[in-house]
Design a protein around this nucleic acid. Sequence first.
DNA 1: CAGTGGCCCTGTCTGC
DNA 2: TGCAGACAGGGCCACT
Length: 290
Amino acid sequence: MPELPEVEVVRRGLEKWVAGTSFGEVAVLHPRSVRRHAPGAADFTARLAGRTVAEVRRRGKYLWLTLDAGDAAGADCLLVHLGMSGQMLVTGAGSPPVRHLHARAILDDDTELRFVDQRMFGGLLVADHGAGLPDVIAHIARDPLDPAFDEEAFHAALRRRRSTVKRALLDQSLISGVGNIYADEALWRSRLHYDRPTATLTRPRTTELLGHIRDVMNAALAVGGTSFDSLYVNVNGESGYFDRSLDAYGREGLPCRRCATPLRRRPWMNRSSYFCPRCQRPPRPARSGV
DNA sequence: CAGTGGCCCTGTCTGC
DNA sequence: TGCAGACAGGGCCACT
């Protein structure tokens, strides 16, 4: 469940512990973790060995380690997506192996960078990058904490869409970094039902919604992200505390913190939507012929 | 082209 | 006790 705040916590950890170090031996222990690296695992390890990490960047739920120029091969990077349960862990070299350890790299002889992923939705690849963004994620929109996020364009896209608001929030080509948890939290704060048609949102409503998305993400970031179990942790293996502050997600049957009405859970797109039936009224069904 | 739904993956929990 | 099924769900891709 790492969404933007959790990925940002990991990015900061990597920036602190990994930036400036150099890759020694790299090993892929499970080929599925590098499935998006088209040339294969051997090419993946070969392209990292000996390289030095320059910066650690993020867009939405993706993060990447930019690599020094090396030869004249052009700019490239190690691109990471944590999926549902992926972890980037920094340990001492030679630490005992753990379950679901799928890739590891020695850094500067004394440190080990690990990719651990129970559910295997996450993955690693070496990607070329042009204008500040890896080519393979060119379709990922800027995220709401990006100063260059274009609110006007986002609103215009919502108005154009014939879709519903939660679907749109989860569409990473429209706005990135929002997943099921923060979508439900921001919709609850905005008193918006998840099935509200995007075309009905006014400019002030969009502004308000974006404000709530940023607020809830910043609040989560301040306490190290949201963890329900040991699946999401920072690079040192520690959990965040935002789960204690959630107002909607996972609170089926518990009283709404605004109006005390029990919250509901609805199956939605192979996952769940949590909402207050009183504060977040469903949209009126569209009338035909009007 | 925009929008939608299926699928990948494993561990945990619940109900029969 | 054991097994089946639900659930967690981001992103890609095929299909309408």
